[in-house]
Design a protein around this nucleic acid. Structure first.
Length: 430
RNA sequence: GGAACGAUGGCAGAGUGGCCAAAUGCAUCCGCCUUGAAAGCGGAAGCCUCGCAAGGGGCCGGGGGUUCAAAUCCCUCUCGUUCCGCCA
């Protein structure tokens, strides 16, 4: 959530900043929020004053009783009763208003960073680095889609995955499964110098999924287990962010850094029929996420660090990649500033988004109530959260199978994965 | 799934209708002492919210109720602990 006070004190500034997202309906919501807030403040003031009077009278009742003045205490009780009735009806109105305001605020997007480039949609995202590791030409033997190679080598068995679970589920086998796991191991090992490894729950409560901004607006994108009120996480960002929910961190402990390898579940509603082959879009996949809870003035440097770390793993795998920055029109609801890393897959002849690194400013932390305290100072401040996909398995796996395919149809294992492959150096042609 | 007991400030833990925003301890901050630190001594200090301020309102797991007045009484939900059952 953005700060209601910001909306109150500088409505034009907020309006200008959100206008950069190029979503007209967003500005309408802003107006609704503003008018709800105005009304709420008037009513709250009036209600607080009534409460003050009731509180005073109640104190008097106690004092008068002690003094033995029964008649006066009865009179005070009667007066208080009347005020209390009016207070209750105002309180009802104020509760309704604040619930409506909260509901609107949950749907209003974060304010883009001033340096986020302007743009209307994903086609306006500028390339800020790369292509890197890009060979001048790709050989014909690399121009084979990973689903063909994967099936031929017996390392991808989507047919049976579909038998087991339905469309958009995948299954790796043999060295393909080993390589999927090796990728996670690599990503965890590369970040273990600074990030605590966590194995969080993958089923979470509604409150947890709301904290990161995935609810209420994107309920259709998540798998739900209605009977138990639980949701399957779309990313480890969800449980890792809420790891600190409701807590007050000490400044010296920040930034807090955690990472996790989890399954991620996405319904991919609205993308039915797209990317149906191979592993480009699946309902369930593995990912290693790295996440930081930082002081506001640490956040910009942390964003750079996360990008560098995620980039480093892709570079270590020797894959051709580039980095793009997300423009204001394509920025996610909770995002303040974001970069994507894309890998080139010669078999599909496409750039694949394999990592997304984002700074959420205080947007998620306000929802999750993650604060920090500076030693020696009164009060608390809201933290900043940031995270990035250190490695998302399926698309990287696909890019490796395509880039590393050799003329004889086998797939060479990238050097960086060799320590985790039980001695295998190649996935042999059948 | 059954039973019992719980949920109070950063943490631990008192408090069973008004003088309780809440004892006490730890942690924190300021001062004294000390070459410096620790210990000791004295003091400050909960969080959220409205307000320039003075000051007001709210918060004792969530929600509802009783009352002039609720941390305290009633209902309900959630979560935790322990025991039993089941189980990887």
């Amino acid at each position: 959530m953005i700060d209601v006070r910001l909306l109150r004190n500088d409505p034009e500034g907020v309006r200008r900043a959100l206008a950069r997202r190029a979503k007209p309906e967003l500005l309408e919501q802003l107006d609704i929020a503003s008018s709800l807030d105005d009304r709420l403040r008037v009513i709250t003031l009036e209600r607080d004053d009534l409460r003050r009077q009731v509180n005073e009278l109640s104190k008097q009742v106690g004092a008068l009783r002690k003094a033995g003045d029964v008649a006066a205490s009865e009179a005070a009780m009667e007066a208080s009763r009347e005020l209390g009735e009016r207070e209750r009806s105002l309180a009802g109105e104020s509760d309704d208003l604040s619930a409506s305001l909260h509901d609107v605020m949950l749907r209003i997007t974060n304010i883009p960073h001033p340096d986020s480039p302007d743009g209307a949609g994903e086609h306006d995202n500028p390339v800020v680095k790369g292509p890197v590791n890009m060979p001048a030409t790709f050989a014909d033997h690399q121009r084979v889609p990973h689903w063909e190679t994967g099936t031929a080598l017996g390392i991808l068995d989507n047919e049976r995955a579909t038998k087991i679970s339905g469309a958009m589920f995948t299954m790796q086998r043999g060295l393909g499964a080993t390589m999927a796991r090796a990728l996670c191991q690599l990503a965890l090992d590369r970040n273990a110098d600074a990030f605590e490894e966590v194995r969080p729950p993958t089923l979470v409560s509604t409150a947890t999924l709301t904290a990161t901004g995935h609810l209420p607006k994107f309920a259709d994108d998540a798998f739900a287990i209605e009977r138990d009120g639980l949701w399957a996480i779309p990313t480890a960002e969800v449980p890792l962010t809420s790891l600190y929910a409701g807590e007050i961190l000490d400044e010296p402990d920040m930034p807090a850094r955690v990472m996790a390898h989890t399954s991620c579940f996405r319904r991919e509603a609205g993308s039915a029929g797209r990317d149906t082959r191979g592993m480009l879009r699946t309902h369930e996949f593995d990912k290693v996420e790295i996440l930081a809870v930082a002081l506001p003035d640490q956040a910009a440097a942390m964003l750079d660090e996360l990008v560098t770390r995620c980039e480093g793993t892709i570079a270590a795998l020797g894959l051709p990649y580039r980095i793009i920055e997300i423009c204001t029109g394509d920025l996610g609801q909770s995002h303040h500033r974001s970069f994507d890393i894309e890998v080139y897959a010669p078999g599909c002849d496409r750039w694949l988004e394999v990592s997304s690194v984002s700074w959420f400013s205080d947007y998620q932390a306000r929802r999750a109530d993650i604060r920090f305290r500076r030693p020696g100072q009164k009060g608390t401040e809201i933290a900043h959260t940031l995270n990035g996909s250190a490695l998302a398995v399926p698309r990287v796996w696909a890019a490796i199978v395509e880039n590393y395919r050799q003329a004889d149809g086998s797939v060479r294992i990238p050097d960086a994965l060799l320590p985790y492959m039980r001695g295998a150096t190649v996935i042999p042609a059948q």
